[in-house]
Design a binder for these strands. Structure first.
Length: 473
RNA sequence: GGCGGUGUAGCCAAGCUGGUAAGGCGCCUGGUUGCAACCCAGGAAAUCAUGGGUUCGAGUCCCAUCACCGCCUCCA
């Protein structure tokens, strides 16, 4: 069955067709490394991981690129408030913008690992792509799509009639409703900088037009084309990037090389926290580290971020993280039960259930990665097989299904839990007193285990140790 | 002001090509257990934002209103 994606460029769901058979090339707007990424940022990053893992599940070879924006488009004497970089430098005791960028880049990668987000194939830094950006700027000047004024180079939107095709904006209308500050250097208010000269900037490079820094939109065009070719298949980012950022990327790349830039654009809607938009002033602004510090489980956070349709806002709540944790536990519990199945006789009810589960899971996912719907089908499957006694081979088949979908989800516990010696010892001690029906002592040992972060479940086949994943449940 | 999106049980939510509403969490009852936890069985709970319209029939299409989100300025 075809995979349907809701492409912003098309304005509707369209069938995905790769440029290269069996291969997908994707570009994802990455972090600006002047602060910790917040939980909303991670919705977009988890989505890029979901896409990648899902394409791999479908058997595609995937190539991913994500930019690291380390060019501070900021000045030493910021007009309003204090410069973000300077604040970050003081906060972290760092000496220059480059150090700030490397510091937060490292934190970003740590956060990716925390959320089990698979690494993209390239993470180009903007500061290391300046030659390519200069080259693209020169090309646009040569072709007449850009003009130089006072050491800055602007893209001339009037030379690109398709400007607006992604966002649905219309240059004439934009001009009418313009509330931009007038920049006398620009011919049109929506012309945007490819190269900018500004003496007060901290980061500067040489160029044919004097010292300056690259424009805000150029890095993504250049990196996408360099690592993925032009056109490439999919470009993703937060919904806020649609205009002007992605619109400008298209204009630059297509004007420079006279061919389409990207075939499908997917935009991730923002998340709300407790029903409101996240902001520091509202006190509902969280980084990933904030949540971990409060004791929330990383897999629950991943699950929570992933199991909602990317095309609508998600209401992220602290209760939701706990609910996510318990949802994962339910799946894990089913997996554990399957591992104990040793029957030799096939259960006739199993086959149809298994087939339905696979088909419906796939059908939901093919519908624009409707993970929510797909998981609904998985839970229906869990409920129905929890009632059945299965043969070893059937249990194995079910386990394989969980293993496959976990390639996408990345939150399930499929391998046996390794129980530390110390814990095993207490559990065995508890078994001895339990057999002697010394309940007081038995419960004391159970409390002791809890203190150490472990639970014990007394099953018919003996005690099973279970790691307590989350103190706040 | 313009463009796009959302509003479904206590909470998170699927439902997008129209035929009276998935799933998870929570809650209730029973089973299991030494007691729990986990699990199982059963159950309560939704006038699908509001008001019109089209239709034999609308959460699902159309119009209007309200609320919220994004963009029009850097931002996932």
């Amino acid at each position: 069955m075809p995979l349907m994606l809701n492409s912003t460029l098309h304005g509707r769901k369209v069938e995905f067709k790769p440029i290269h058979e069996g291969e997908v090339r994707m570009y994802h707007c990455g972090p600006t490394v002047y602060d910790y990424a917040h939980i909303g940022n991670f919705r977009a990053f988890v989505f890029s991981d979901l896409l990648r893992r899902y394409f791999e599940y479908r058997g595609y070879k995937v190539k991913q690129v994500m930019n690291i924006t380390d060019v501070g488009h900021l000045t030493t004497d910021a007009d309003e408030g204090e410069d973000k970089i300077l604040v970050a430098m003081r906060r972290e005791g760092l000496k220059d913008p480059w150090e700030v960028a490397r510091f937060y880049e490292e934190k970003f990668f740590e956060d990716l690992d925390t959320l089990d987000i698979r690494r993209a194939h390239h993470y180009p830094r903007a500061t290391e792509m300046v030659p390519e950006m200069l080259e693209c700027t020169k090309k646009l000047l040569e072709k007449g799509n850009a003009y130089e004024v006072n050491g800055s180079v602007y893209f001339d939107v009037d030379t690109f009639p398709e400007y607006g095709k992604l966002s649905g904006n219309d240059v004439a209308r934009l001009r009418a409703g313009a509330r931009l500050e007038l920049n006398p250097d620009k011919r049109h208010p929506y012309d945007f900088a490819l190269w900018k000269q500004d003496p007060s900037h901290i980061m500067k490079w040489d160029s044919p037009w004097g010292e300056g820094f690259p424009g805000w939109h150029l890095e993504c065009s250049v990196m996408g084309t360099k690592f993925l070719g032009q056109p490439f298949d999919i470009h993703t980012g937060g919904e806020d990037n649609t205009f002007p950022h992605h619109e400008c990327e298209i204009a630059q790349a297509e004007a420079a090389y006279d061919k389409p830039f990207v075939n499908y654009w997917l935009h991730v809607r923002h998340l709300l926290v407790d029903g409101e938009k996240m902001s520091k002033s509202r006190g509902n602004f969280y980084t990933l580290r904030d949540l971990l510090d409060q004791g929330y489980d990383r897999k629950a956070i991943r699950y929570q971020l992933m199991v909602s349709y990317y095309g609508v806002n998600q209401n992220f709540t602290m209760d939701g993280i706990g609910a996510a944790r318990r949802s994962i536990d339910r799946l894990n519990q089913c997996i554990r039960r399957l591992k104990d199945m040793r029957g030799e006789v096939d259960n006739p009810d199993f086959g149809p259930l298994m087939e339905t589960a696979r088909n419906e899971f796939d059908r939901e996912m093919e519908d624009d990665l409707n993970v929510t719907g797909a998981m609904g089908k998985v839970f229906e499957f869990v409920t129905s097989i929890n009632k059945l006694e299965l043969s070893l081979s059937q249990a194995t088949e079910a386990l394989n299904f969980f293993r496959e979908i976990n390639g996408i989800l990345g939150v399930l516990e499929l391998s046996d839990v390794e129980v530390p010696e110390e814990i095993m010892e207490i559990i065995q001690r508890r078994e001895v007193v339990r057999r002697a029906k010394n309940w007081a002592e038995s419960d004391k040992l159970r409390d002791e285990l809890k203190e150490l972060g472990w639970a014990v479940e007394d099953t018919s086949t003996g005690p099973v140790a279970k790691r307590l994943t989350h103190p706040i449940d």
